[in-house]
């Protein structure tokens, strides 16, 4: 046991490990906050669709040989997020079908582009790390770290200041709109933030796994807690603990970061399910 601690503190002595831990925790915190509204509004799949879009955009960016991929990936993802949220309110085109269309198209296009205009010798390795996360979180510069911290603080501040508005819009869009809240504006705002979080989080867990960071904390918290406030706080804590635990395990055991975090998420979800069942039985 003491051996593990020694190894861990040895790793912690490297600044890039500390950076990775900080950024990882912050990203999952943001994702979990947004997850509460997304899950409740039945938009869980949007996270999934967007991460695929981000993959396609990333492929285009690397084919074009851009030095900073984010400059292209972020706008495209934000655009798609707004498009998806808008159309899911449109009764003529079903939102879920559109998400399916967009996500497979982006995946196929991305992979095709990477193959046809290959810029590196190890295509499958590149694709794999984009899809399932890579150790790129360990190569973050201090600039990246500050950017992530700034972005996360912005998301958290937004969530606190607009907490009551977000509740109103999530619980009853019609009522909120009827009482003068600019629902459309909030939806666009939320969509933009989701896109930002997804693009940042792709570094951590990869595009295929990113929606896990969004849905698991909220779903787990909803098993046990009954008020919106408690669910929000619990999912934030859940996200912080599980991502921290996942990253520590992956560092010590040498397992892939993204997959390990999500395994911890799944385990936590099951614990909360059992806890929820037990509480309900006790209440009866």
């Amino acid at each position: 046991m003491s051996n593990i601690f020694e190894t861990f503190s040895y790793y912690l002595s490297f600044p890039f490990v500390r950076y990775a831990l900080i950024v990882g925790v912050l990203i999952s915190l943001c994702a979990s906050l947004l997850g509460v509204t997304l899950v409740l509004k039945r938009y869980s799949f949007i996270g999934d669709g967007l991460s695929h879009t981000a993959f396609g955009a990333l492929a285009i960016a690397s084919v074009l040989g851009l030095t900073n991929n984010t400059l292209l990936v972020l706008p495209i993802t934000i655009l798609c997020a707004i498009l998806l949220l808008k159309t899911s309110q449109n009764k003529k085109i079903k939102g879920d079908a559109l998400i399916a269309i967009i996500s497979v198209s982006a995946l196929a296009l991305g992979y095709l582009l990477l193959n046809v205009f290959s810029v590196s010798s190890n295509i499958s390795g590149d694709v794999c790390s984009t899809l399932f996360g890579s150790m790129s979180i360990l190569t973050l510069s201090s600039g990246d770290v500050w950017l992530s911290i700034g972005l996360s603080l912005f998301v958290i501040l937004f969530f606190i200041l607009f907490y009551n508005k977000i509740f109103a819009v999530t619980f009853d869009e019609n009522f909120a709109q009827a009482s003068g809240t600019r629902v459309e504006l909030y939806n666009v705002f939320i969509a933009t933030i989701i896109a930002v979080v997804i693009v940042v989080a792709m570094n951590l867990v990869g595009s295929l796994l990113v929606s896990a960071l969004i849905i698991f904390p909220a779903l787990s918290a909803m098993r046990v807690f009954k008020s919106f406030k408690a669910v929000t706080i619990c999912s934030a804590v859940f996200a912080v603990v599980s991502s921290l635990l996942g990253m520590i395990v992956s560092i010590l055991a040498g397992t892939p970061v993204g997959a390990t975090i999500i395994m911890v998420d799944i385990f936590g979800f099951m614990v909360f399910c059992v806890l929820g069942l037990a509480l309900r039985r006790k209440a009866k």
Binding site: L40, K41, R42, F167, T170, F171, D172, E173, N174, A221, M222, F225, K226, S227, F228, A230, V231
Partner: peptide, 9 residues
């Protein structure tokens, strides 16, 4: 609405 059926609030 459907959303409200299992809304934690």
């Amino acid at each position: 609405t459907v959303v409200q059926k299992d809304f934690p609030a």
